[in-house]
Amino acid sequence: MNTDMLHNDTSYGGLVSYTCAAGYKHVSGDLQRTCVGNGSWNGTEPLCKAIGCPRLNFPNTNIISLDSSPGGVVSLSCLDKRRHRHVSGDLIRTCNENETWTGTPPVCKECKCPCSAIGSAPIKSNDTEKLNQRIKELRSMLLIQKNMTAKARLLKICASDPRPSAKGIGVVLGIGVLVVIISSIVLLDLPNLINAVKSKKQ
């Protein structure tokens, strides 16, 4: 498979010779075979495979572009950036001359929180500026407003207001409340008062 025939002599004792096609290398079988007496060829069929690195397949990843020939580059990404984030390994790798990939396998894990809140990749420990910025963002997200807690609300008391206008408003409101209360009492007792007056006249 994936071979070119160089010589073909099908007579008894004749030879057939193969070579691998361009971009392929010989991995098994015989590139030269002889026609034997029973009308068959000795040896086994040659097999040539493409020269290059093996195809990559990792959980929760997509292949964006792939060139598996020596010197070629493969680019990967996490399966769904809204649900997965890159936590380790290399998303860009190069095929070596010895048909192995550089770097380490990428790892994309499913987010337990919204990925937009935690970022698409971990911050390197030596990146102090980004690390401090991330800490600041997380503190802001997790900050508890003390004046909004149940305890703070229970402790709230009315503050005094020494302004003359505030005192005047308080006096007016107080008088108004008293007038309303007294008027209500009078109105409730008015029928009894009328009946008492009528009784005396009789």
Rank of each mutant, 00 (worst) to 15 (best):
G52A: 09
C78S: 11
G72L: 01
M148P: 00
D80N: 04
S120E: 14
G119A: 13
Y24M: 13
T3Y: 10
M5P: 03
L47I: 14
A152V: 06
E97R: 07
D161V: 15
K146C: 04
C53G: 04
G103K: 06
D30H: 13
A196I: 01
T34N: 09
L66V: 03
T10V: 11
W41R: 14
N60D: 15
T19Y: 03
C113L: 08
V186I: 10
S184T: 15
C20K: 07
N132K: 15
N42T: 11
L154T: 08
H7M: 10
L79K: 04
V74W: 03
I144C: 05
Q32E: 13
R153K: 15
D4R: 10
G72R: 06
H86N: 03
S183A: 10
P46G: 12
T10I: 00
T104E: 10
S88W: 08
G39F: 02
D189K: 14
M1F: 07
I118Y: 10
C48S: 03
G13Q: 05
P70L: 06
A50N: 04
A21E: 13
P164A: 14
D30Q: 12
P59Y: 05
V172G: 12
K198R: 08
D30I: 01
D90A: 05
I123P: 06
A159K: 15
V87D: 04
L15K: 08
L143D: 12
L138F: 14
T19W: 02
G119R: 07
H86A: 00
C113Q: 07
